[in-house]
Amino acid sequence: MKYWTIPVALFATAAAANENIPDQYPQSLLYSAPVEFVPGVFSAIGATAPSTYDNAGHNNNLSFVITGEGVVVVNGGGSYGLAAALHDEIRARTDEPVVLVIDENGQGHAMLGNSYWAEQGVKIIAHSDAAHEFEQTGHRQLESAQRNLQDRAEGTFVQGPTETFDDEYIVDLGDYRIEARYLGPAHSPGDVVVWLPNQELVISGDMAFHERMLPIFEHTYTADWLDTWDNEFEALNATYVIPGHGHPTNMEQVRRYTKGYLEYLRGKIGEHLDNGGDLAEAYYVDQSPYAHLDTFEELAKRNAGRVYEQMEFE
């Protein structure tokens, strides 16, 4: 088993990773500069807040691996400009070309930056369900980005992946085996994780959260997410986790704030249903143990309502 010292800077600034800080890297469209987490693996940590003009839509993590035989990028980014800004940071660290982009899901902040990478001739891969989701919603997501980001969305167009997969997509480059894996239903259609077995590190995408409250969408089935977590995600036995949002961490933290939160909320809604409670009251079940998480105010009530609607028919 390999162990590396995690840079203190990653955690020294963790308290500053909150939704009230609009931008931590003013000289770039990126919200923060990429940091090397373990040797060769970098991540530019996005804002733990909704997409805004100030954070340029960089509200998720944009990661890359310098393999010695080319760079693999995880997440296309939320706009043409964000992808270009990430590429500038990559070029500042290596002469190796970007050879592959992996989109972690079909959301705009994962795929809208494909518009830049496609122009560079880079192969872009995603799960087939994520590609379908983006095909159906990409123009709507682009319009939303243009409203929020204004001139910072300039050049962005709808570009899906150039190749899709259903179960896994594996590449071996240098000392890195990079496995894009679909583990099962989770946060959104076609969610994938990127597993680096030699580094015992998973770039989890939206499978795992810890610094901000996870959102539950209309198509997020929480019982399925928990099944995927228990049966597949835990089985990776990862030592290190770069989540979809928030600083790199470990399994204990993401377990507490993803699996733990889902189980807690389902338990509260289950009690509410057993007591004959209705949807209007469900929005106000107690979620105070998670009130310190970013985006709590935006998401807690909505999450409760959606879990009620699911569990009502389970």
Rank of each mutant, 00 (worst) to 15 (best):
E263C: 06
A17I: 03
P26T: 02
A238M: 06
V285D: 03
K259M: 12
G40L: 09
W229H: 12
L265Y: 03
N237E: 15
Y80G: 06
Q141N: 03
T5M: 02
G113A: 11
V8F: 07
V65L: 12
D54N: 02
G277Q: 07
R212C: 09
A15K: 11
D151Q: 14
V158K: 06
V254D: 05
D95T: 15
D151V: 10
M213G: 03
N55P: 04
N148H: 12
E36A: 06
L149M: 11
E218W: 11
H109N: 07
R266Y: 05
V101I: 15
G113P: 00
L82P: 02
E309H: 06
N105C: 13
R306F: 06
V73T: 10
P243T: 13
E96T: 13
A126T: 05
I45L: 05
D294S: 15
L183H: 01
G244E: 00
Y283E: 01
P39F: 05
V72P: 03
V202Y: 01
P289D: 06
H292C: 04
Y53L: 13
K301M: 15
I242Q: 00
G40M: 03
A235N: 12
A126Q: 05
N18R: 15
P289K: 07
K268G: 04
G260N: 08
R140N: 07
F296A: 00
R91Q: 13
E179Y: 03
D224Y: 13
R93T: 01
P7E: 08
V254E: 06
L262K: 06
M1T: 13
T222G: 08
A84M: 13
